[in-house]
């Protein structure tokens, strides 16, 4: 895969933003991103068993001075809702959430997850930005990290298949 691919740009964006602790849970569409995170000696990588624990791990990291991000599927966002509400929102804590937008238009996985993703984020008051062009990945990730720190709330970037470099069968 060329170094200008979406997954490479996403991880470069995280590093240029100053992120140094990343909690992740796999999805096949995140594979190329997670491989890069796991192989990067500059990132503390925490592989999760369930996404809500990642909200806690990133909170602990933030409280001792780390810049943290989570990478997960939108189903993992749903698994994390109590942690988002009663930790991140209740304590006014920043966190960069990189969420694979399964079931997005043009993505034939988990259509129901796709339909609920933006409504759930909106209900939580979590701002979110959809990343469709790999060339915008680095700038959007860097700006979103600044925003979440200024806003003191989690902010999400929704990662689409166009950026992650996989296509659904039949497309």
């Amino acid at each position: 895969m060329a170094e200008s691919s979406g997954p490479a740009l996403i991880v470069e964006g995280l590093k240029e933003a100053g992120v140094d602790l990343v909690a992740t849970l796999p999805d096949i569409n995140l594979h190329a991103v997670l491989e890069r995170v796991a192989a990067d000696p500059d990132l503390v990588h925490v592989p999760l068993c369930r996404e809500e624990e990642g909200i806690g791990i990133c909170t602990g990291g933030y409280l001792v001075g780390r810049k943290c991000a989570m990478i997960m599927q939108n189903g993992g966002l749903f698994n994390s809702v109590n942690g988002i509400v009663s930790t991140l929102l209740q304590y006014n804590l920043p966190l960069l959430l990189l969420v694979y937008y399964a079931g997005d238009v043009g993505d034939r996985s988990f259509a129901t997850n796709g339909a609920m993703t933006q409504p759930v984020l909106s209900a939580l008051g979590v701002q979110h930005f959809i990343l469709r062009d790999p060339n915008e990945a680095k700038a959007l990730i860097k700006r979103t990290l600044v925003l979440t720190q200024d806003y003191k709330r989690p902010v999400a970037v929704l990662l689409t298949k166009d950026v992650l470099g996989r296509r659904s069968p039949g497309e």
Partner: peptide, 21 residues
């Protein structure tokens, strides 16, 4: 001392601190 309000996340928040520092 840090008091956690999300049931279950005590050990996760402590883990993040231990890895971060």
């Amino acid at each position: 001392n840090f008091r956690v309000r999300t049931m279950g996340l005590v050990s996760s928040i402590a883990l993040g601190m231990a890895l971060g520092l």
